[in-house]
Design a protein around this nucleic acid. Sequence first.
DNA 1: CTAAGAAAAGTGTATATACACATAAGAAGG
DNA 2: CCTTCTTATGTGTATATACACTTTTCTTAG
Lengths: 146, 146
Amino acid sequence: MAQITMEPDISVCAHANLRKAMRSVSQTYDAALKPSGLRATQFTLLAVLNNRGPMPLTQLADIVVVERTTLSRNLKPLERDGFVDSRPTADQRVRELVITRKGREVLKKAIPHWQEAQNRLRKKLGQAQWVDLLGALSATVDATQT
Amino acid sequence: MAQITMEPDISVCAHANLRKAMRSVSQTYDAALKPSGLRATQFTLLAVLNNRGPMPLTQLADIVVVERTTLSRNLKPLERDGFVDSRPTADQRVRELVITRKGREVLKKAIPHWQEAQNRLRKKLGQAQWVDLLGALSATVDATQT
DNA sequence: CTAAGAAAAGTGTATATACACATAAGAAGG
DNA sequence: CCTTCTTATGTGTATATACACTTTTCTTAG
């Protein structure tokens, strides 16, 4: 006999657990990055722009899997602080995002702190669980994006 | 020779990947819960209050691993809509949170939609990866909370 | 008992997030 | 060409998130 209605078991909810882990990890990474002045989310955006070169908003949104309109707003502080610049393109609808010299500098300063946060968590988890985590997250994104 | 400075490999960043997966999964669950009128985050809070009974704010914050001040604000819409009530206790500093009858009703209505989102994702991931995901997230919370 | 310290909760401010809707510009068909 | 469709982006509104700081109330040392 199947249960009819009941108490939803939140301990096996993918959403609740993802959110919980996200909050916990975000606090860790944000704290580690604090000396650099960057938030972890901002670090990610700068790193992508640095590694992959200038690109339009929509492309960046696709890469990091952020809603386009969210990204538009996330860029505000980075533009305000002069870490990211946007320049017009031939297609006048498109604005191409570029990391500035100042942006590269703050990124460079932040990298050791990010690395430190990475190392600490990887050590705490152990290599096997670290790999599991990244694998499971990747599979989850794939499963929800299609 | 170790690398000196370089491009941080965001594809192996626990934070970036967690955040990415969170966004993707949140959108899925929020969409599924839409007919109920609840956000996935709100569903989680109601479910905990329903399953574990009334409790003070701080305790709920500990359980769901949300910053206390965040939770305080997350409860606002639920109180406004009459899904959660807060009542004074002997200790006048404490306000005890209670799910209301209306809250239980909306929760009940939301459960099938939540279940549906759960099932869909579990099916897409497969049982093995589903278990991996929940295990990895749990381990991650443990690793960052200590 | 009272003063010092701890605990529970709220506020100010800032970022992060996304849906619904709006705008503007390029592309495509006739 | 011009209308229609599509693409790139922005705005309005609302929730989610957390740090620093404040307030109120208990608790505890003396």
